[in-house]
Nucleic acid binder design. Structure first.
Lengths: 180, 180
DNA sequence: GTCTATAGCTCGATAGAC
DNA sequence: GTCTATCGAGCTATAGAC
């Protein structure tokens, strides 16, 4: 893997596990097993490091949106089912980026863009605005619970239980009008 | 108002508007129109300041839980309807505290406690676990959107529109079995 | 109860050797 | 492409005057 990606991985891990404050240039460099100078060769400033994180997030989100559109269960079921933190590349990008809200406006704008795109896809499937919003909010709620549970193991996160997931998906099916 | 409460208010405002990093002792003292030494007389350390914030949060949450139980529309409708950021004392406490997750474990524990209590109340009303979870998640999603929208004016926050709120409440009514 | 001054530390960023 | 060394700024916390 490129040193660049290695550094971004280290940055993500630190953000998720220890938060914004702990994700200093020195800590990122240390975790990537590079010196601070080595880091600053690839990213000229901390802003550049954040920008690199956002670029990767957008890439992952685009791939995810495509899978969301083509999933046989439909976008809504896909969205709710994948909103539980499972440690995917997108999950990690999102969790890490969430720690940086109000660091710079770019972070919030990027996350809102992605969020808006998801909503468009779900609205297209569901048709009705109210139900589409409810589905979105359930996914958002799951994501919020993951953030609230923080860097702790995914085991404790609400929604990991298979029965709970099935139950929730049936509620979503009712809301979307599919098989419900 | 006591200087203590004044300082906690200033701390909250800074956290909401500018984030954890900007909420330094100096900044808090300045916003409360007190010197840094004055602040440190009331709160011996930054941890003590955070602890003060958590105590107020718990107080507000207890009052809110009581209103939730006694609201004529039922706890679920109350929860979803009040999860939209409206600038109440509880809203501000929650938003501010949300910025401090992963600062110390105490923050996360306190928020999870409050969250658990809300769930108990809703489950008691709804009866069925799956539906109760769905209702909770919708509220959580609204709250997450508020956090995502950050310190920006509440106008842009999804869920502020009266029609949207009514539509959402009817979905909740369907899930809880009330009037739906 | 509130103030100023400052010690001690850590951060982001630069400079320059290799 | 990676390293060490260091500067200047900003942070928490302490000491002591008023």
């Amino acid at each position: 893997m490129s040193t660049r990606d290695n550094l971004l991985d280290a940055f993500e891990e630190l953000l998720i596990d220890d938060g914004e404050r702990s994700a200093t240039l020195e800590a990122v460099a240390a975790r990537a097993q590079v010196s601070k100078g080595g880091l600053l060769y690839h990213f000229k400033s901390k802003d550049a490091l954040v920008e690199g994180l956002l670029e990767r997030l957008v890439e992952h989100a685009q791939i995810d949106a495509e899978q969301m559109r083509t999933d046989p269960r439909g976008p809504s079921a896909y969205y709710v089912d994948t909103s539980v933190y499972a440690g995917s590349a997108l999950d990690r990008s999102l969790m890490a980026t969430a720690r940086l809200i109000q660091e710079t406006p770019r972070v919030r704008e990027t996350m809102q863009d992605i969020h808006q795109r998801w909503f468009s896809i779900i609205l297209q499937e569901v048709g009705e605005r109210g139900a589409a919003r409810a589905v979105m909010l359930i996914g958002d709620g799951l994501y919020y619970n993951a953030v609230l549970s923080g860097g702790t193991s995914a085991e404790d996160v609400a929604g990991t239980d298979p029965d709970d997931r099935a139950e929730l998906l049936s509620v979503v099916a009712r809301l979307t009008g599919r098989q419900g």
